[in-house]
């Protein structure tokens, strides 16, 4: 029985949970801050994009693991 597809699916599926929650929290806080003070948009933009990029990187690692499981291992 070939369990590799299951392993790859679990890798990306479980790996995407944390970054998903993190991205939601980060975005909601950023929206809150912009809602309170619309002028903070300019200063918030760069740290926000960097933060979500770092959070998203974790799910990309999971994706890479899944890809390695399928294509390399």
């Amino acid at each position: 029985m070939n369990l590799t597809p299951l392993a790859a699916g679990l890798a990306i599926g479980l790996g995407a949970i944390g970054p998903g929650i993190g991205l939601g929290i980060a975005t909601s806080k950023a929206m809150e801050a912009i809602g309170r003070n619309p002028e903070s948009y300019g200063t918030l933009f760069v740290p926000f994009v960097l933060g979500i990029a770092l959070a998203e990187a974790v799910s990309i690692y999971a994706l890479v693991v899944a890809l390695i499981l399928i294509f390399v291992a």
Binding site: E39, S40, Y41, G42, T43, F45, V46
Partner: peptide, 9 residues
């Protein structure tokens, strides 16, 4: 000053 904060991305 608050009004000098660069706005827009």
């Amino acid at each position: 000053a608050p009004q000098d904060v660069p706005s827009g991305g």
